[in-house]
């Protein structure tokens, strides 16, 4: 069984009460792109208000799994899925579950910053607008709160109506995070959010993730093991479409149970 306790509280004897509920529970989840199986029999529980990191060599299925959690993976027409992924107790793969509803609860930040070719303001207001918020005052508040939440307000507050493409890569990525916060999600998925950024911007995003975990559950894919070690509570190691090992981050990095995990984190392959 996988423990879902937070590593900081592990020592406490009555940690049963502090055990966080799961936001996601994958059970025997399989995924194919056409004939090629990309994910094999994944069992994976993701706890609330944790930062859960997914690591593994490229092509092992990290992004595929992440995109399964908000069903973005279905944008690829050849995708077939089997098994179950529960979000707060409901199977999101059932045809009864609306993807639009899921995606307002489970926001996503992509590998490459992808702001809309609109103003900074309009980028953040996009989500609230499509969900029916028209009132200018409310929108203004949402935009300000979200930009503050993404630690970019001070940098952009005087140029809210300028095109988002004028921002630096790191600022664009934090704008994308603000855009995601604006729909007030429950979970935030991040697919290598810093891989296109310089070290300073990376640091800012990492600090931001630490702050956000107070209010959100975060699942972050990263190919940077130091990053996983720095910011996550739990780490999952994927290899060739399988979940090899999943445990508290400090256990994974100090005392992995599986040889393949050890080989990977010690840099023997990957």
């Amino acid at each position: 069984m996988i423990s879902t306790t937070n590593k900081n509280k592990q020592a406490e004897p009555n940690n049963k009460k502090l055990q966080k509920p799961n936001v996601f529970e994958a059970k025997g989840f399989n995924l194919w792109y056409g004939e090629d199986q990309a994910l094999k029999n994944i069992d994976f529980d993701i706890a609330e208000n944790n930062v859960t990191a997914i690591i593994g060599p490229s092509g092992c299925g990290k992004s595929t799994f992440l995109k399964s959690l908000n069903r973005m993976v279905e944008l690829v027409p050849t995708v077939k899925m089997a098994g179950e992924i529960q979000y707060r107790g409901k199977n999101i793969l059932s045809s009864k579950f609306g993807v639009e509803e899921l995606r307002t609860k489970v926001g996503m930040v992509f590998q490459k910053p992808n702001p809309f070719p609109k103003s900074i303001y309009e980028n953040v207001a996009y989500g609230p607008r499509i969900h029916g918020i028209r009132d200018k005052v409310t929108l203004d508040q949402i935009v300000e709160t979200s930009l503050k939440g993404a630690a970019i307000w001070d940098e952009v507050k005087d140029r809210l109506h300028e095109n988002a493409y004028g921002l630096s890569g790191g600022q664009q990525q934090r704008l994308c995070i603000a855009r995601c916060l604006a729909i007030e999600p429950d979970v935030i998925l991040m697919d290598e959010p810093t891989s296109a950024l310089d070290p300073i911007s990376t640091l800012k995003v990492e600090e931001l993730v630490q702050q956000l975990k107070q209010n959100f559950s975060i699942v972050i894919v990263t190919h940077n093991m130091q990053q996983a070690a720095r910011i996550s509570d739990k780490t999952a190691f994927f290899l060739s479409g399988e979940l090899v090992e999943y445990n508290d981050t400090d256990v994974i990095f100090s005392n992995p149970r599986d040889n393949r995990t050890e080989d990977y984190i010690t840099g023997r392959f990957g």
Binding site: R103, T104, N114, I183
Partner: peptide, 26 residues
């Protein structure tokens, strides 16, 4: 760009909202 379409879907927009607000203007 497929990226900005994905961004829109990722925020819970329907196909038509994405077409109307992201794809067509571009």
């Amino acid at each position: 760009s497929k990226d900005i379409q994905e961004a829109s879907y990722g925020l819970g927009a329907t196909k038509w909202q994405t077409i109307r607000r992201v794809v067509l203007p571009a």
